[in-house]
Simulated scan of single mutants.
Amino acid sequence: MKQSFEEFLQVYLSIWESSDLEGMKRIISEDYRAREITGEEILDFGFEESVEGWKNGFEYVVQNNAKWDISIHSVFPLRNNQVMAVIEAAMIIDKEKLPHANLFFSTFSQSGNEWKLVRSYIEAGVQRQLSPSPGLSS
């Protein structure tokens, strides 16, 4: 499981970094559930709202000639077929790293040979971390 997840995670990050909406749609489970916290605002959402959020984010990156700045802070198994990854994502615009990031606690589930994003808890607009865990940057 560990090797297949590590390979999947690299594909997932590649899709994210290239702002590939169709690729992201294939990775998100149709039963996906998420909670995002922005300041005091709490938003619960599912697959359709997630796809719309990724679409908006990817369009913003393209329109602003930005790049994603993504770091993996930790990865650990939850169950026999589930793994959680803690991912920090921000943007770089005009070679300047934006001061805030989103922190994703993302749970992926394996069914057969296929991994899907099934749950997320997201802290939006947090101060960027100075450095990720050693050896886990993308």
Rank of each mutant, 00 (worst) to 15 (best):
S29Q: 05
Q129I: 02
W68F: 15
D31H: 09
I15T: 13
Y121A: 11
E40Q: 10
S137W: 07
F104M: 04
D20E: 11
S131F: 12
S4Q: 10
L130E: 15
V11I: 14
I28G: 01
N113H: 07
Q129G: 02
I15M: 02
M1R: 02
K67I: 01
Q110P: 01
F108D: 04
F47N: 07
N56W: 11
G46H: 08
L130G: 14
E49L: 12
R33S: 13
F108K: 02
Q82P: 01
V126D: 02
V83L: 04
E88L: 04
G23P: 15
Q63T: 01
I28T: 13
F45Q: 00
A66D: 08
K2E: 14
E123R: 11
I93C: 02
M24P: 06
L78V: 10
I70L: 13
N64M: 01
I28Y: 09
S137A: 14
S14I: 05
T107Y: 05
S29D: 14
P77S: 14
I28M: 10
E123T: 01
E52Q: 10
S137P: 01
G112N: 10
S138E: 09
Q127Y: 03
E17K: 12
L136W: 03
Q82A: 13
F104Q: 01
E96W: 01
W115F: 07
G53T: 06
E96N: 08
L103Y: 05
N81P: 02
S74K: 08
V118M: 07
K55P: 00
R35N: 08
E40C: 03
L103T: 03
Q63M: 03
I70M: 09
S138K: 11
E22W: 00
